[in-house]
Design a protein around this nucleic acid. Structure first.
Lengths: 229, 229
DNA sequence: TTAAAAAGATGATCTAAATCATTTTTTTAT
DNA sequence: ATAAAAAAATGATTTAGATCATCTTTTTAA
């Protein structure tokens, strides 16, 4: 779905994005070449194994990045929000996407053409360095994820995930993720995630309104998360 | 342990390392500023949570990069060999090491001072770009590891790990890793790794001499590895 | 507004893999 | 060469969490 372009220069996500490292002139230039679309909830932004055509910059909403198996199982690796870039790795390595990006809610996403991205990489050192730092941070958190899935019990992983998600969704009052997505995020199944979330509710660590989760005792959750570190 | 410096310019690992992107003059300069040490088997090269003082370049041997838990459990994330750089991520982000590096066998490792590394990053675009590409690849393989630990049964993970290790150790005839390290690498326990390796021997997928593993049916292993993708 | 679909809850059962315990083989150090 | 230590092998037992099945609540769409 096409929509009137939000302006990059005045974009409310600019401060929290890598565009913060771009000059006004650069931002203006990007603004002219970009296109912008609304993705409905559950709509795929890009598919695993497909070659990229540009850089996606999330203007509003949230996007899950996941690997999907032939068995239908899904592993969510990361959840991106307003201001985040997605799909830049394939642009750098010239490889097809290694993950699938799907909208978790209705989201507005801008697409910056490949050439524009590469030009920015060539000409703006600050941008380049900030991007490199972002990738390094991502790698570190992914390495942490490996160890935790391997050694931390489900209860600890869900406690930790809820704290992380509360931070991602800090502007909203509730964590807006189905139990099934929560399960995919921590590497378990729906039923187990449902059970653990119910336990946390009984233990007064979280409250639930309809199906939405709100943390009411983050210290308690942190303790559960750290039990096995 | 100190030793006579191997020469960077004639280093047999140079072709397979990122120094391949450096000019002769640059390599000479690095050669003069570097120091070189032998690390005995099981010796720690650097520790988690410690700040880096330079860039490590493996001249010979093999190094495991792992996270170690307070419970004593270890998750091996990556195994680095001759020509590989280790510890560059902390140098880029100015953070302490997020993993511990330990010699799997007696290894020779050069240490390039921090300043030298940063200068190279500033002045040599090819080097910079190659490093960025390396990190991107690492991130992709770490993401794959997350999904596999979450969804692939131990048999499949060990089959896959053996194929990967055979490739890392392609110059040697045997895979030189204890069952315990193999277990840490795929996220399981020693006993389970031992049992699966024994099964593979019984199924004529591998042969074992003393405790060393040699692959004799890689197609079979690949099939087991792919059963659940 | 109502029917259908999706999400969540919950109980029962099963199983892969962890844990615990002991023995054998290989390696290392004296 | 021999003793001690480390690694591997193997059996018995336990368990966390997956799977299967059914029911309830909430959301979505006609």
């Amino acid at each position: 779905m096409r929509m009137p372009h939000p302006e990059c220069t005045t974009c409310k996500s600019r401060g929290s994005s890598l565009f913060n490292f771009c000059s006004c002139a650069e931002t203006e230039k990007i603004n002219l070449s970009k296109t912008c679309n609304i993705y409905k909830k559950d709509q795929v932004v890009f598919h695993e194994n497909v070659f990229p055509i540009g850089l996606f910059c999330i203007n509003s909403g949230s996007i899950k990045l996941s690997k999907i198996f032939s068995t239908g199982k899904e592993q969510i690796l990361r959840i991106a929000r307003a201001g985040d870039f997605i799909g830049y790795r394939s642009l750098i390595t010239n490889d097809p996407y290694s993950v699938t990006a799907t909208a978790l809610e209705d989201s507005t996403i801008c697409l910056i053409p490949k050439g524009e991205f590469h030009e920015l990489m060539q000409t703006n050192k600050n941008f380049y360095e900030a991007l490199l730092a972002t990738i390094c941070k991502e790698l570190e958190s992914t390495e942490t994820k490996v160890s935790e899935i391997a050694y931390k019990p489900v209860r600890g992983r869900i406690a930790e995930a809820l704290l992380l998600l509360a931070n991602i969704y800090k502007k909203e009052e509730y964590i807006n993720l189905t139990r099934e997505d929560l399960a995919s995020f921590v590497g378990t199944v729906k039923e187990t995630a449902i059970r653990v979330v119910s336990e946390f509710k009984d233990e007064k660590l979280i409250s639930i309104d309809k199906r939405r989760i709100k943390i009411i005792n983050s210290k308690g959750l942190l303790q559960i998360s750290n039990l096995y570190d």
